[in-house]
Design a protein around this nucleic acid. Structure first.
Length: 288
DNA sequence: CATACATCCTGACCGC
DNA sequence: TGCGGTCAGGATGTAT
């Protein structure tokens, strides 16, 4: 499940393999993959053909290629999206959705996505807080790896919310890049229960939580990202190894490495929240 | 305006 | 062997 570290691994791969190359032709094999590009597949392909890729950029879980001119190709990997750099002629992946060929006989870029939650679109760019961003990214908060990330502002924003702390942590308009895996890991590191009300968080606790999120995502990035299966891979199709370092996510029934408590899984927003019942006790306001 | 939630999708897995 | 149910879950559009 691509969150910030996984998307950053992909961004680096794109910067290394795609930046500086000129697009020759684009083939859309599944229209749903470009459903957010409202003018449709032919318009999408037409806008990309002949353009040079100037840079690969990212904010939170959004990824985009700056093109010559002012447009960008915006990508979101969703749950299962992959950006693969493959030699022309390599067998098509089962869930290949979009193929991008370049004018230099080098490898092609493929967007592969089993569940089609992700997708590509072109987007105009707009200046937001001194930064040029694709329009659909304008509302996304800076992520903790952004040099201009303001921890104090993020703490204030989080404490202004009136909800469970994990909901706030997952809200991409407060702080971006955190998904279900790193949310649970950050909460465990800070010994906070996922249902702790944000209004009862001290400034220090909110700061520790966001700092923990920054650290755990940094460690995951160093390990090449987290992967449980073949659904998340870098542009060369390789998986990361951070899943071996997870303390609570996916660890139901195993012993907490800090206190020996039995990790539990709770239903949370039609998904799961993993926590240690001993070091992350439920808030009193939420009886069993 | 803020918060909550149903919805999109495919495949792995499990119990019967 | 197959079949139905469950789960994985990011972001959006809609409802409250």
């Amino acid at each position: 499940m691509p969150e910030l570290p996984e998307v950053e691994v992909v961004r680096r791969g794109l910067d290394a393999h795609v930046t500086g190359r000129r697009i020759a032709a684009v083939q859309v094999l599944h229209p749903r993959a470009i459903r957010r590009h409202l003018p449709g597949p032919e318009d999408f392909s037409g806008r990309l053909a002949g353009r040079e890729v100037l840079a690969a950029r990212r904010r939170g879980k959004y990824l985009w290629l700056d093109l010559d001119g002012s447009e960008a190709v915006l990508a979101h990997l969703g749950m299962s999206g992959q950006m693969l750099v493959q030699p022309e002629g390599a067998p098509d992946e089962k869930h290949l959705r979009v193929r991008v060929r370049f004018d230099d006989d080098g490898p092609e870029l493929r967007f592969v996505d089993q569940r089609t939650f992700g997708g590509l679109a072109t987007a105009d760019q707009v200046l937001v807080d001194g930064e040029l961003l694709p329009t659909p990214v304008a509302h996304i908060a800076r992520d903790p790896m952004d040099p201009a990330f303001d921890l104090g502002a993020a703490v204030d924003a989080m404490r202004r919310r009136r909800t469970w702390v994990k909901r706030a942590l997952l809200d991409q308009t407060l702080v971006s890049g955190v998904g279900n895996i790193y949310a649970d890991e950050s909460l465990w590191r800070t010994k906070l229960h996922w249902a702790r009300p944000t209004e009862k968080l001290t400034r220090a606790q909110a700061g520790e939580l966001l700092t923990a999120a920054t650290e755990v995502m940094g460690e995951a990035l160093l390990a090449g990202g987290t992967s449980f299966d073949a659904l998340y891979v870098n542009v060369n199709g390789q998986s990361g190894y951070f899943d071996r370092a997870l303390a609570v996510y996916g660890q139901e029934g195993r012993a907490c490495r800090r206190c020996g408590g039995v990790i539990r899984r709770d239903p949370f927003m039609n998904r799961s929240a993993f926590s240690c019942p001993v070091c992350q006790p439920r808030p009193r306001s939420m009886r069993d």
